[in-house]
Amino acid sequence: MHPVIRASSAADGHSCAVLQIAGKLGDGPLRDSAGDDPMNSDEKRNRDAALPGLTVQREVATVALQAQLTGTLGIDASTNCIVVRSLISTSPGTDSLVDIDVAWPPGWSVGLRGGAPALIDETGQVACRPGDEIALGGGFKDTSRMGVVSCTGQGRVFDAYRLTRT
C-alpha cells in the first residue's frame, strides 16, 4: 500500500494544518510529486548552471576600433566570467598578468562542447576555449557609454569585433 497524506485544519481557519500519513513508508527514498528526490536537488540540476558568464555587446559596432589585445582566454575564478589574461606592463621592466573583461559581439555565448566550456560565436561555432592564445581587434570602452553591464563588474571592457587564435 502506498502512503496517503491527508491534510486537515480546524474549522475556525486560525489553526495550523495537521498532516496524517496513512500506510507504510518503507525504506525507499522519498520522492516529490514529480518523482524527484527532494533531498538531492542537484540530481536534475541544469547542466549549464555552472557555465561561466560573459559580457556581450548590445549592438554591432558601427566603427571598428584599431587596438589589439593579446592573451589567453580564461575564467576569472572570483566572478566565474570569461576573461582574457594578458601580460600588461605596469612600469619599465615590470609586467603583471591582468584579467580583462571583453564585450563580445552580439550573439556570442558560452556553451559546453565536448564536456568543457567554450566561447561560441554568432554562427554557433566554437571560437575558442579557455587556455587558447588569442588576439582580439577592438578597443577599451566605458561600460556606461556602451550600455552594457560588465560580467566582472569592471567599469571598462575591451570592445571586441574580431578574434584570431594565435
Score class of each variant (00 low, 15 high):
residue 96 S to W: 09
residue 77 A to V: 13
residue 51 L to P: 10
residue 66 Q to P: 11
residue 53 G to Y: 12
residue 109 S to M: 11
residue 110 V to Y: 07
residue 71 G to F: 05
residue 126 V to T: 08
residue 69 L to T: 02
residue 108 W to N: 05
residue 81 C to V: 15
residue 113 R to L: 12
residue 73 L to P: 02
residue 104 W to H: 03
residue 82 I to L: 13
residue 79 T to K: 13
residue 112 L to Y: 11
residue 58 R to I: 15
residue 107 G to P: 00
residue 53 G to H: 14
residue 133 E to P: 06
residue 126 V to D: 07
residue 86 S to A: 04
residue 105 P to E: 04
residue 88 I to E: 08
residue 56 V to K: 00
residue 110 V to E: 08
residue 85 R to S: 15
residue 130 P to N: 02
residue 135 A to I: 05
residue 84 V to I: 08
residue 67 A to D: 12
residue 129 R to L: 08
residue 59 E to M: 07
residue 56 V to W: 04
residue 124 G to M: 12
residue 97 L to G: 07
residue 110 V to A: 05
residue 89 S to K: 12
residue 111 G to K: 00
residue 59 E to D: 05
residue 62 T to W: 10
residue 135 A to C: 03
residue 106 P to Y: 03
residue 59 E to W: 04
residue 99 D to V: 12
residue 77 A to M: 09
residue 98 V to D: 07
residue 57 Q to S: 08
residue 51 L to V: 09
residue 86 S to D: 01
residue 103 A to R: 10
residue 92 P to L: 02
residue 121 D to P: 11
residue 52 P to N: 01
residue 72 T to H: 10
residue 100 I to C: 06
residue 112 L to M: 13
residue 66 Q to C: 14
residue 60 V to A: 12
residue 65 L to E: 14
residue 86 S to R: 01
residue 122 E to H: 06
residue 55 T to C: 01
residue 106 P to W: 03
residue 104 W to F: 05
residue 107 G to D: 03
residue 52 P to Y: 02
residue 130 P to L: 03
residue 96 S to H: 14
residue 76 D to F: 03
residue 133 E to H: 08
residue 99 D to Q: 14
residue 104 W to K: 05
residue 58 R to T: 14
residue 64 A to N: 08
residue 105 P to D: 02
residue 103 A to S: 13
residue 82 I to A: 06
residue 85 R to V: 11
residue 116 A to K: 11
residue 51 L to S: 13
residue 132 D to P: 07
residue 117 P to A: 08
residue 75 I to H: 02
residue 106 P to K: 01
residue 87 L to G: 01
residue 82 I to T: 06
residue 125 Q to D: 06
residue 77 A to L: 10
residue 107 G to Q: 03
residue 124 G to R: 08
residue 88 I to T: 08
residue 75 I to W: 02
residue 101 D to R: 01
residue 129 R to G: 12
residue 55 T to H: 04
residue 61 A to L: 15
residue 104 W to G: 01
residue 131 G to A: 14
residue 95 D to G: 09
residue 126 V to N: 11
residue 50 A to G: 11
residue 52 P to C: 01
residue 53 G to M: 13
residue 102 V to R: 02
residue 64 A to G: 07
